[in-house]
């Protein structure tokens, strides 16, 4: 582009430029939608309503964790401990239920555990300025250690007489929709309002975009990094609770697999609509897409381990394509 054409307002975009913008915004969505007919052609039962609802149900846990991650990504930091945290929260919730303390206490326990992790992460990264990746890698191992410590390395069984709500959340339907999906929608709405409509969200994006400019505009960068880690860990805790509901109990180290899924979901999300910016709608779509693939793989008898490779490619491809901040200058 020659320099003389910039700066002037409103030159009409060429058709090719417009196509490019369109593909940038919707390319990923189109790609996702194409997956459905392809799998359905190979295996028609895939498209049944029951299976579609099943996909939504399966998407809930990983999408919740990815939503947590969306907060830290928006604020320009990273949290590798999300998987470990989800696992730990799940064990805590399961143990509380197994001891018969009831559903509300279990929820509170999971959230409190998440809160603690978030506060520690925030302290390490925002206050001590330890590199966010290293701090949270270490936190991942600490949460795994706590996880194994609390579960004693064995599955936690829950007597469902005391925890009917958990079974409802894991397997049940409300108003014809999976309860898990309704929970996801509710949490996603709250996250969306926080990130997109509130001043907190705007400021999180600001410190993610340019912490120096945000600081000079009166934004408390350190405080908001804390906030990002805490919000992240709280939403991840909900994801951990959901994990317990899916497993109908607690399984040691069950959260770790969620790390890759959630990173993949959030990075796919950044390629959708607002290129390079992590956002709630994108993350939800990314999560559903990954769940669809996992489900489709089962239908097509593709061994589960191919998902590891797909996930990695999704992360690398999405980050490279969206030019997200996870790319260096």
């Amino acid at each position: 582009m020659s320099a003389s054409t910039t700066a002037v307002s409103g030159p009409a975009l060429s058709r090719r430029q417009r196509l490019f913008i369109f593909l940038g915004n919707y390319g990923t969505l189109i790609g996702m939608l194409l997956v459905f007919p392809i799998i359905a052609m190979l295996e028609p039962r895939f498209l049944s309503t029951g299976n579609m609802l099943n996909i939504l149900r399966q998407a809930a846990t990983l999408t919740l964790v990815a939503l947590g991650l969306t907060f830290v990504l928006a604020a320009g930091v990273f949290d590798i401990s999300v998987g470990g945290t989800a696992g730990l929260c799940s064990i805590v919730a399961a143990l509380i239920l197994a001891r018969g303390y009831g559903f509300p206490l279990a929820v509170a326990g999971a959230l409190l555990t998440g809160l603690m992790v978030g506060i520690i992460n925030g302290f390490l990264v925002a206050r001590l300025h330890i590199n966010d990746f290293l701090a949270t890698v270490a936190m991942m191992f600490i949460t795994i250690g706590m996880d194994v410590l609390l579960s004693k390395g064995a599955n936690v069984h829950i007597d469902f007489e005391y925890a009917a709500e958990l079974r409802l959340l894991g397997k049940g339907d409300v108003l014809g929709m999976p309860a898990a999906t309704l929970l996801l929608i509710a949490v996603a709405l709250v996250c969306h309002v926080i990130l997109d409509r509130s001043s907190l969200g705007r400021r999180l994006y600001a410190i993610g975009g340019n912490p120096r400019a945000a600081h000079l505009s009166g934004v408390h960068v350190e405080r908001l990094r804390w906030a990002a880690f805490i919000l992240c860990a709280l939403v991840v805790a909900v994801g951990g609770f959901m994990l317990s509901a899916r497993l109908e109990g607690g399984k040691p180290r069950a959260g770790e697999a969620l790390l890759g899924d959630s990173i993949a979901a959030a990075s796919i999300g950044t390629t959708f609509l607002r290129r390079g910016r992590p956002h709630v709608l994108g993350t939800v779509l990314g999560g559903i897409f990954l769940a669809t693939l996992a489900n489709g793989f089962v239908f097509l008898n593709i061994p589960f381990y191919y998902q590891y490779i797909v996930r990695a490619f999704a992360i690398v491809g999405a980050v490279a394509f969206s030019g997200m901040r996870l790319q260096q200058r």
């Binding site: 705007r202 994006y205 600001a206 975009g209 340019n210 400019a213 000079l216 390079g276």
Partner: peptide
Amino acid sequence: DEGLVLSFTVRE
């Protein structure tokens, strides 16, 4: 580097 969040819109 200091004045703008370049990824933000004019409004933001």
